[in-house]
């Protein structure tokens, strides 16, 4: 068995002294884990989460772990090492992929969204929007598609401002106001698919998506609702807003 695909490095776990297990998010093969000979050497710089890779995977049988040949094409993380918010987003993206995405199931939308985030990393308003949109895609991929097309309370769909924490359906801003304490605020950029977001909008978006990601984890019996990296991103967004 052999395939070649473009991928994003999600994580590298050392195996023995000189080798590693590499997790990647690929365009056509979804999340995939394979052996990387020489990938754990401490004498040279290792692959970093977010690295864009040209991957060749080989195994004798399809269900084997197999091994990667990985060539790094670009390293968006290298330009973001001095930017705490960008690194927090990158770490959260990798942690959520590793936790929520099933292995070996193609998820082209998730891969495309991750590429959009990596491209937007140097630009704070763009990356905030790209990250939140990516989490929405992730929710849709795992079966929590949120509906921002109509009002769950029967009102107009022109000014949706809330989301029901139970059904994931949006509600009109004025009609939902009496239940404001129970509903989750819906940021305008998320509703309208806008390409930029403020720190406060990112905070609201993370509260919204975090709630449903936590629900998913609860239903899967996945222990903690959210991975630590995602919790740190949310805490950072709360402070920044």
């Amino acid at each position: 068995m052999e395939w070649r695909d473009a991928g994003i490095a999600l994580g590298l776990a050392r195996h023995g002294e000189g080798h590693a297990l590499l997790d990647v998010l690929t365009a056509g093969h979804g999340r995939w884990r394979g052996y990387l000979h020489g990938g754990g050497s401490r004498k040279r710089a290792s692959l970093q989460p977010g690295d864009l890779l040209d991957l060749v995977w080989r195994a004798r049988l399809e269900d084997q772990l197999g091994s990667f040949r990985a060539e790094s094409l670009a390293s968006p993380a290298a330009r973001a090492l001095d930017d705490g918010e960008a690194l927090a987003m990158l770490s959260a993206l990798c942690a959520l992929c590793l936790r929520h995405l099933p292995e070996r199931e193609p998820a082209p939308g998730i891969h495309a969204g991750a590429l959009e985030l990596l491209a937007a990393l140097p630009d704070p308003p763009r990356r905030r929007a790209a990250y939140a949109h990516w989490e929405l895609r992730l929710l849709a991929e795992i079966g929590f598609g949120l509906d921002f097309t109509r009002c769950a309370l029967g009102g107009p769909a022109t000014d949706l401002g809330w989301v029901s924490p139970r059904s994931g359906r949006a509600a009109d801003r004025a009609l939902g106001a009496p239940w404001a304490e129970k509903l989750l605020p819906l940021p305008v950029f998320l509703r309208d698919g806008l390409p930029e977001a403020s720190p406060a909008e990112l905070r609201d978006a993370l509260r919204l998506t975090g709630h449903f990601l936590g629900l998913w984890a609860g239903r899967q019996g996945a222990g903690d609702p959210l991975p630590p990296a995602r919790l740190r991103l949310a805490a950072r967004a709360e402070r920044a807003a």
Binding site: D82, S91, A229, R232, R236
Partner: peptide, 15 residues
Amino acid sequence: NATVDGRATAHYLAE
């Protein structure tokens, strides 16, 4: 370390 995890830790501590 000058890795994503190392720098993420540094930013966390700096704050």
